[in-house]
Computed example of a mutant assay.
Amino acid sequence: MSQPQSRPIQLHYWPTPNGWKISIMLEECGLPYEVIPVNIGRGEQFKPEFLALSPNNKMPAILDPEGPGGAPISVFESGAILQYLGRKTGLFYPADERGRVEVEQWLFWQMAGLGPMAGQAHHFRIYAPEKIPYAIERYTKEVHRLYGVMDRRLADRPFLAGDYSIADIACIGWAKLWERQGQDIKEFPHVAGWLERVLARPAVKRGLALNAEDRAKIDFATDAQAQSVLFGQRPAG
């Protein structure tokens, strides 16, 4: 980043594994930001003003008043936001093509694999009103396979792409919830070591702590309104 950011980035956020990606990245980069809570348990992700930023009605999203060329820009999808902030600051996202490809492989691995599969494991193990053994076993086993992939990757390097990067930032919020996914971290000693290294970073601690009190306000396992919004409601329009 050639000049310091003078106006804060708007972070539309709720404390979830995907929201944590961006709160951690903003803390790691030292960028000024303001939080605009999006209470996903009460349907705030369907408000027109949020849909203007995130047409997929998913948070997080950002609005950077000092985007490319000095003009405002909004970005949705957590992986795209990480890439944007990495390019903007020159941090945690290499400029050289080989280094960038190395990071992107593991970023997209999280976006297409670890996040969706862990999310389904959470759903069927914890939130689903009907416990379906096949679904629980299916997603628990797939998450187990993905942790095995990560464990092998981390056997000879401290972080997923060698150096700490947006790939690690993308994964940490999901991986720290391994117990909810039915995993035994002792089976994955290299992942366990990686978790310890990443979670010890001060910026990661701050990012994970952001609006932590909101996470306790709604029990998605028992709150009927939240379940209707997240698991059954369709946006109007």
Rank of each mutant, 00 (worst) to 15 (best):
F50R: 04
L146R: 07
I24E: 01
P60F: 04
H144W: 08
G79A: 01
F220A: 06
D64P: 04
P68D: 09
E44I: 06
Y93A: 03
S6E: 15
V38D: 02
P15S: 07
I166H: 01
A221Q: 14
D151H: 02
A216D: 12
G30Y: 12
L177S: 12
E137F: 07
E102Q: 15
S165K: 00
M117I: 11
E137M: 07
Q110S: 05
E142P: 08
R234K: 15
G19L: 01
K217Y: 08
P94C: 07
G148N: 06
P65I: 02
G193K: 04
L82H: 01
A203F: 08
A203M: 11
G90K: 04
K88S: 07
L51E: 08
Y84K: 02
I36E: 13
M117S: 01
A203C: 09
Q83T: 11
V35W: 00
F159L: 05
A167H: 03
F46H: 12
R153K: 14
K205R: 15
P235T: 09
Q225V: 14
G148I: 05
S228T: 13
I172P: 03
R87T: 12
K47L: 15
Y127C: 11
E187D: 14
W20K: 09
S54D: 11
P133H: 07
W106M: 03
R42M: 11
I62R: 01
N39R: 13
P129A: 08
K88N: 06
P202Y: 06
Q181D: 10
G232I: 06
I81T: 05
G69M: 07
S6L: 15
Q183A: 02
P65N: 04
N56T: 13
L31C: 12
E49I: 10
R206H: 08
P48W: 07
Q10A: 15
S54A: 14
I169W: 00
E213M: 05
G41P: 08
A212G: 14
Q83V: 14
K131P: 04
S74P: 02
F220D: 02
A161T: 05
K58Q: 11
E66I: 03
K47N: 12
K47W: 09
P235E: 11
I40G: 03
Q110T: 04
G115V: 05
D168G: 00
G41I: 10
R201N: 11
I22Y: 00
P32E: 11
N39Y: 10
E187S: 12
I40R: 04
E34N: 12
A226L: 09
K131D: 09
Q10C: 12
G99K: 05
L177N: 12
N57W: 07
F188R: 00
Y147I: 03
R138A: 09
K141P: 04
I40N: 03
S78F: 01
H12T: 06
T89M: 05
